[in-house]
C-alpha cells in the first residue's frame, strides 16, 4: 500500500528514551495513537509534522517520502500535513478569517468555514471564541491547506468535560468528511473508541498492540490495554438523566442530563464499589448482583459481574479477600451518578 500514511519512526531522544514505531493509515481511515503522557506521542507528532527529524526509518504520505533519517527531509512548510495542535495555537493577532486563510486562499478559507459551520465567527478574534469554537477554527485552518494527512494532537484535551462530549461529536462528523488519512493522538480512551476506526496502543515509545476497539477490548495485550479495555461501555438512551440500557434489563442514573437520546455510556471499573449489604448514602445506582468471575491483574483484581448488568469492577486484592469474593457470591454494587458518563454516539 502506497496510498495513505506509511511510517517507521525511530527517534533516539536520550539514553533513557527512544521512540520506535510503525504506523499505516489508509485514505479516509481514522487511526488513534493511544498512550499515557511520556509514551512518545509528542515526539511522534513532531516527527510526522516535520518539526523534528527522525533518527532512522521513513515517513511517507501517498508514496512521497517526507523524511528518511538521511538525505531526504521535507520541511514542515512543504509537507502538506495539516496539524490540529493540543491547545490549538490560533494566531491571536489575526481574525478567524485570517487564521483560516493563513496557509490557503480566501476562497478556501470561506468554504472550510461553511463546512465547519463557523461562517458567523469569521470577523472575530480567536480570543473571543469558546474552546469548542477555537477547536473548529484550528481544524478548519489545517483543512484549508488541503492536506495529504491530518494530524490531531489531543484535540479535546483543552476542553472542559461538558463541552468535550459535544465537541467530540461534531469532530467525528467533520473527520468523516476528510478523505485523507487521519492520525489522532490522544491519552483518552473515549476519544480513541469514539473517533477512531483502529487503535495503536503506545507505551514507552513502542506500539504494544493494534486493532479495532473491539479487538483490544476482547484481548488486551498489556495491563495498560487491559485498563483501557476494562472501561465498561454500554449503549442506551438518555432521558433527563435516566439511562435505559439497550442490551440489559436495567436503568442507571447519570448526572449528564443534557445528553439526550442515543448515548454511549462509560463506567470506569474503579468507579464501581462493592458492598456485602445494601449501602446507604449518596449513590443513586445500587443493585444486587452475582460475581461471575474473579481475575487477578497484579496489584488489582478484576471482578466480572453477572446479570442484571455484566460489567468489570477493579478492586484491591485485600478487598477481594475481605469480601470473600468468588464466582456465585451475591454482592451489592453501587456507582455515583457523577461517575456514569453519557456521550452521544453519533452514527456509529
Amino acid at each position: 500500500m502506497t496510498e495513505g500514511l506509511r511510517a517507521r519512526i525511530r527517534v533516539d531522544r536520550s539514553p533513557t528514551f527512544s521512540l520506535d514505531i510503525e504506523l499505516a493509515i489508509a485514505p479516509g481511515e481514522t487511526v488513534a495513537l493511544l498512550g499515557h503522557n511520556g509514551a512518545g506521542k509528542s515526539t511522534t507528532v513532531e516527527a510526522i509534522a516535520g518539526l523534528a527529524r527522525v533518527s532512522a526509518g521513513q515517513i511517507a504520505v501517498n508514496g512521497r517520502v517526507l523524511d528518511d533519517g538521511g538525505n531526504i527531509f521535507v520541511s514542515p512548510a512543504q509537507r502538506k500535513v495539516g496539524v490540529v495542535f493540543q491547545d490549538y495555537l490560533l494566531f491571536d493577532h489575526l481574525s478567524v478569517q485570517e487564521n483560516l486563510g493563513f496557509g490557503a486562499t480566501e476562497a478556501k478559507a470561506t468554504r472550510v468555514a461553511e463546512q465547519l459551520g463557523i461562517s458567523d465567527l469569521l470577523s472575530m478574534s480567536p480570543r473571543q471564541l469558546s474552546g469548542g469554537q477555537q477547536q473548529r477554527v484550528a481544524l478548519g485552518r489545517a483543512l484549508a491547506i488541503e492536506p495529504d494527512l491530518l494530524l490531531l494532537d489531543e484535540p479535546l484535551a483543552a476542553l472542559d468535560v461538558e463541552t468535550r462530549t459535544a465537541t467530540r461529536r461534531t469532530l467525528a462528523e467533520h473527520l468523516r468528511q476528510f478523505q485523507g488519512p487521519k492520525l489522532l493522538i490522544t491519552h483518552d480512551p473515549a476519544d480513541a473508541f469514539l473517533l477512531a476506526d483502529r487503535i495503536y496502543m503506545m507505551e514507552n515509545g513502542r506500539i504494544t498492540q493494534s486493532g479495532t476497539a473491539e479487538e483490544i477490548r476482547q484481548k488486551p495485550a498489556t495491563s495498560y490495554a487491559a485498563a483501557v479495555a476494562g472501561t465498561n461501555l454500554l449503549h442506551g438512551t438518555n432521558d433527563n438523566g435516566t439511562l435505559t440500557l439497550a442490551d440489559h434489563p436495567h436503568t442507571l442514573q447519570t448526572s449528564d442530563v443534557q445528553m439526550a437520546g442515543d448515548v454511549l455510556i462509560t463506567i470506569h471499573p474503579r468507579a464501581v464499589s462493592l458492598h456485602p449489604a445494601q449501602p446507604h448514602g449518596s449513590p443513586r445506582n445500587t443493585w444486587l448482583t452475582t460475581v461471575a468471575a474473579v481475575e487477578p491483574l497484579g496489584d488489582t483484581t478484576r471482578i466480572l459481574l453477572a446479570a442484571p448488568l455484566p460489567i468489570s469492577v477493579d478492586i484491591t486484592p485485600a478487598s477481594t479477600a475481605s469480601l470473600g469474593l468468588a464466582p456465585g457470591v451475591q454482592i451489592w454494587a453501587s456507582v455515583k451518578a457523577t461517575e456514569i458518563r453519557a456521550s452521544p454516539t453519533g452514527e456509529r
Partner: peptide, 24 residues
C-alpha cells in the same frame, strides 16, 4: 509553537517571522 504551527501551514521561515513572530 505558534511559529511551528505557521510552518505546518506552509509558511517559509521568513514568512513565519513576518506574519507570526513580528506581530507577537
Amino acid at each position: 509553537r505558534h511559529e511551528a504551527a505557521a510552518q505546518t501551514l506552509g509558511a517559509t521561515d521568513l514568512e513565519v517571522f513576518r506574519r507570526i513572530t513580528l506581530p507577537m
